[in-house]
Simulated scan of single mutants.
Amino acid sequence: MEDHDTGQEVAFLFGRRTNASFKRLLKLLAESDVTVSRWFTDYWWACHDLLPTAIHQAGKDQTQRIERKHLDLRTRTKRLARRTICFSKSVLMHDTVINLLINHLFF
C-alpha cells in the first residue's frame, strides 16, 4: 500500500486476496498509526466488504502508479520465474528476497 500523494510505501502484505488477508493489512496499518482518508482500490470484493463506502473508490483510474510499481517489482525479482537460473523452491527464500527488495527500493 502506498501514500497516493508521495508514492511512499506505507505497508505491504503477501497472501491470497481474501477477507483475512485484507484484515491483516488493516491491522498492520492500525499498528503503524497510519490514518487512511481515502481508499483507491481495484474491484477486489474484500475491500467492498470491509471498507466504508464513503472513503472507498473502486476503479483502475487511480491505481495506475501502484500497478506500474508492481510490474517493476515482478521484473526485478527474477527469482519468481521458474526458467531462470536463480529460481528457488523455498517459500521462505522467496519471501526473504521480496522483503529485502521492497525495503531496499522503498524504505
Rank of each mutant, 00 (worst) to 15 (best):
F14C: 09
Q57A: 04
D5E: 12
G7K: 13
V34H: 12
V91K: 13
Q57R: 08
D42E: 07
Q8P: 02
H4G: 05
E31F: 02
C86N: 13
R65K: 15
I85C: 15
H70G: 07
R24L: 08
R24P: 00
L26V: 02
N99V: 06
Y43A: 04
D72C: 04
L26W: 01
Q57K: 07
T75A: 01
P52N: 10
L71Q: 15
L51E: 12
K89Q: 10
T63C: 05
N103S: 13
K78H: 08
R83A: 03
K69T: 09
H94C: 01
A81R: 11
K69G: 03
Y43S: 06
R83I: 00
H48S: 04
L73A: 11
R38Y: 07
E2W: 00
M93F: 05
F106D: 15
V36K: 01
L51M: 14
T18R: 08
I102A: 03
D95H: 14
H48F: 01
C47K: 00
R82V: 02
D72F: 00
R24C: 07
K27D: 10
A81L: 06
T63V: 12
Q62V: 00
R79K: 13
A58G: 11
K60M: 11
H48R: 09
T63H: 07
F12S: 11
H56L: 12
V97Y: 11
R65W: 10
V97K: 07
Q64A: 08
T75K: 06
R83T: 03
L101N: 05
H4T: 03
R68P: 04
T41M: 02
L92W: 14
K69V: 02
M1S: 08
V34P: 01
N19C: 02
F22E: 03
E67R: 05
S32T: 08
A30H: 11
Q62F: 03
N19D: 09
T6E: 14
R76A: 06
I66Y: 01
R65L: 12
V34W: 01
K23F: 00
D72T: 11
R65I: 12
D95W: 06
M1K: 01
K78D: 13
